[in-house]
Design a protein around this nucleic acid. Structure first.
Lengths: 339, 339
DNA sequence: TCATATAACTTAATTGATTAAGAAGATAGT
DNA sequence: ACTATCTTCTTAATCAATTAAGTTATATGA
């Protein structure tokens, strides 16, 4: 048995290669009966369809979009925000009959895959700076989400303004404020930022949010001590709990916790309640992102809702559009019992 | 500026396409001076090398090997055994000038990538059964590691015998034995196996190891109660600690813990010591895999060492060889203070 | 000096598909 | 009955590369 190709299958069935190709790609170009017969025969022969490499070469596009996640793929599975985003992405890609290929932003080598995909949707700034450089030089379409890359379109919310709004909703005169921040410095464990150098200042959404918090505090006549700004390496229970415990043990104890994700906000509330603190009487908490779990938890968490599934869909639409401008998506401040 | 291709670059430089191609692929086919000039010019033009899709089509291979990990990619980062394996794989691939592309066994769709890679090295049985079906039908080379797929070559150690050996090294008459097993049933949290149906009985290394433990116990005149066999969903600290605590609280308390990974073994020892138990006087522990950390920890852990980096190299060599037979790699029982 | 070998390129066939343009036959309208 | 249109399928150019075979020109050996 020779290799299975359009050509060999065509010869086998006594039709032209064009007809086989049309059977797979353009059903209107041949009779229903012949198409059925062809697909049936292909199935029996074990021919699964046109070779993707050849198809990609001829068509000039493969129909595959690479989505690059900031860190490990595990992040996306555990984090409700990221997984919602991916749901939106895959739903919108399906509508356009496109395939999704998921990559980790850690070890991926763009050069190896670049010719096989139609472009990259990059969710969050990858730690791997070499990857950023490759994205910058790529001749494929690149769309970034939750961070910016010079000259490339992006999809974002106005993180600075959203952080400002959420802080303004909770701050009062004479508050002691602590920030539970996400990836503010280059460290693998939770710790106060202090005077350590900030990580990737210009592009990170975390720093935009920090700016927003600070603007709100300024407007309220408050100042933020670097000791009260905590770095959390990843948005998960363990890190968050660790940081929350540490922050709540500081003296003076904060009266407001500004948290850069809802997971962190929830952990912070749990720890505060455990210490016998009352929310919002003794301490107020705000989160970020908007996840369902905060609605079921008591007290409910004041947070910035940002509709990650819609963001995923918007990202795909922006990726597919010819428009190279960046866009800001709407967000919504929702007040809960925590403030 | 038209599209950058071999052809356009060749015309630009006034040489043939063959020469450009040779400049990238066969340096011995042209003079050093011309080659330098060409590479220099390509760099300036922004031509990064031959299109991979066309190259793959013409050559019949892309030089990319897909490695599919059983679960999340996070697993590989945190787990020292898996990351050592990957180091071995990438080292050996580099020797053959091949590229490594990492995929999660969870959401990956083989059809989308099959035509772009030369084959699959599958590390551990993927949870996603649809993926197994795709691997079975694939017309590309497939090599499995730590599990078997009918008709495909595999690389393994003799898990049954190794488990038998490790158990024999520790068992004594009248022991109460508990097994801390990895992925024995289809459940997301640690729990005793009891009478729940085993997960994927034939292919899993966990069940081979369980068989080995049981054969050893039989030979020592012991029987294993299903209540003392614990399922742990993933080899990480939290799950392991949880299961260890539960097992140590059982009555009668086990005098021997057979652990299916060293991470689990270490966690179990930590918990036992915390309870004031003496190792090995009150309780003996054996692990599996062999990781450096067990040598630094006190007491050192009796374990089956299996040289994961060498396994990675062996996997690549088996993948590249024309030989379709499966192979068993050597392992080594190393006695520690824990038995 | 002439045959032979080597080095440095080029020519052109080939890889597996897509698709515009063309051909042959069937159907419909007047 | 004749033309126009539609359906159904084929022909052949093309995508971006690789590579065996062929062509010069230069060097080597006797």
């Amino acid at each position: 048995m020779s290799k299975l190709t359009l050509k060999s299958v065509a010869k086998n069935l006594g039709v032209s290669t064009a007809t086989i190709s049309n059977a797979f790609n353009r059903p209107d170009q041949l009779s229903v009966a012949l198409r059925q017969k062809i697909l049936q025969a292909c199935h029996e022969l074990g021919y699964f369809g046109p070779n993707k490499a050849a198809q990609s070469l001829r068509k000039g596009s493969s129909g595959i979009v690479a989505v690059i996640l900031s860190d490990s793929l595990e992040y996306m599975v555990s984090d409700p925000v990221a997984s919602q985003f991916l749901q939106g992405v895959s739903r919108e890609l399906e509508r356009h009959q496109l395939h999704l290929l998921l990559f980790s932003g850690q070890a991926t080598n763009l050069e190896a895959i670049s010719d096989f995909v139609d472009g990259f949707i990059c969710y969050g700034a990858p730690r791997n700076t070499g990857l950023i450089e490759q994205l910058r030089k790529s001749n494929k379409r690149v769309l970034t989400v939750d961070f910016d890359l010079a000259g490339r379109p992006s999809v974002n919310i106005d993180n600075e303004q959203a952080a400002f709004d959420s802080a303004m909703a909770v701050l009062r005169p004479k508050d002691t404020v602590a920030v539970l921040g996400l990836r503010l410095i280059d460290a693998a464990n939770s710790q106060p930022v202090g005077d350590k150098p900030m990580w990737d200042n210009q592009s990170s959404i975390a720093h935009r949010r920090l700016d927003g918090y600070q603007r709100a505090m300024q407007q309220c006549g408050l100042t933020l001590s670097a000791d009260y700004v905590w770095h959390i390496p990843e948005s998960n229970q363990n890190y968050a709990r660790e940081a929350a415990q540490a922050v709540l043990a500081m003296s003076p104890r904060p009266t407001v916790l500004l948290c850069m994700s809802d997971l962190i906000g929830l952990s912070a509330m749990r720890e505060a309640l455990q210490l016998g603190l009352r929310i919002p009487e003794d301490i107020r908490v705000v989160g970020f992102d908007g996840i369902e779990e905060t609605l079921r938890y008591h007290p409910t968490l004041t947070s910035v809702w940002q509709f990650s599934d819609a963001k995923g869909e918007a990202a795909v639409r922006a990726f597919l559009s010819a428009d190279d401008s960046s866009q800001l998506l709407p967000y919504q401040l929702r007040l809960g019992e925590s403030s």
